[in-house]
Simulated assay, not measured.
Amino acid sequence: MSTAKKDYKKITTKSLIDMKAQGEKISMLTAYDYTMAKIVDSAGIDVILVGDSASNVMAGHETTLPITLDQMIYHASSVVRGADRALVVVDLPFGSYQSDPKEALRSSIRIMKESGGHAVKLEGGKEIKESIKKILNAGIPVMGHLGLTPQSIYKFGTYTVRAKEEQEAIKLIEDAKLLEKLGCFALVLEKIPAKLAQQIAESISIPVIGIGAGSGVDGQVLVIHDMLGMNNEFSPRFLRRYMNLYEGMTSAISQYVTDVKSSDFPNEKEQY
């Protein structure tokens, strides 16, 4: 049962841990540019994720793999300039941390120095523990990500629900506890059974933020383009559309085209 919302002037990693301890749910959305970040931040979001999902919704790629570190820094710096209250977490893109802990640290330092972001997010558990340790030892906050890890899509071969089998579920629990032990301040669980997600959230002290992981976790995250209905081709079970901007925007643009061609726009009041 979530308690009443506390008025945090500025959200920090400690704020999120306090929220979990107090039973307050954590709200998280993606943003990739200054204007959207200002809107999301002013609406009271706790965490803005500059996700590598920018590869999909901003650049039109089929997967998150093509986006580069330079591109993530560009998006993150734009978001940071628009966020006054929210904690800004930045995804480390594919290829910037998996192979070498030193490369992981260099990538994280670049994100923190060049974008002004507040923390980084990495996908994986035991396989990347040395990279996580290296980043944390440098004083950079790390958010983990387990379950469906989109950067590993070609390994899995599908975006289906993860950890339905006992062996994978056991590994997921072990990885979550490892991330907590290493010092991660929070963890995202993507597209796993709700009962398993709740079990993990109750077994570790750091906040667990779910996407397609049920309501028994400490918070929720969605891609802003999905929840606002800007992307009408993506309809997973876990998505709730709070608006249908695709229809609203296409209707408005179509009306603009009509008004321009008919010389209705601009009218006498809309000119100098």
Rank of each mutant, 00 (worst) to 15 (best):
G219P: 03
E247A: 10
M143Y: 10
A197E: 13
S262L: 04
S96T: 15
I153F: 05
S53N: 03
N137A: 13
L172F: 03
D33T: 05
Y246R: 05
N232Q: 06
G23K: 09
V208F: 05
Q199I: 08
I73C: 03
R240L: 10
A252K: 03
L187C: 02
Y242V: 11
I45Y: 02
V221L: 07
K129V: 15
T68G: 05
D70A: 14
K133F: 09
L222D: 10
L179H: 11
A176S: 15
I211R: 02
G183T: 12
K164M: 12
H145K: 02
K171D: 15
K5E: 14
F156P: 00
I128H: 05
I109K: 08
L146P: 00
G51Y: 09
Y246A: 09
L179I: 15
P93K: 04
D41A: 01
D91H: 02
G60T: 13
A54F: 08
L239V: 12
L189D: 08
S78Y: 00
S53W: 01
A4D: 13
A252H: 02
K129T: 14
F265Y: 14
G157K: 08
T149M: 12
M112Y: 11
R237K: 15
L222I: 13
R81M: 08
S77I: 10
P207T: 14
A21I: 07
V120Y: 09
Y242K: 01
L146V: 13
V40D: 06
S235L: 04
I200Q: 07
G212Q: 12
D18A: 13
K14Y: 10
G183W: 07
M58N: 09
G95H: 04
R81Y: 08
G23C: 09
V50E: 03
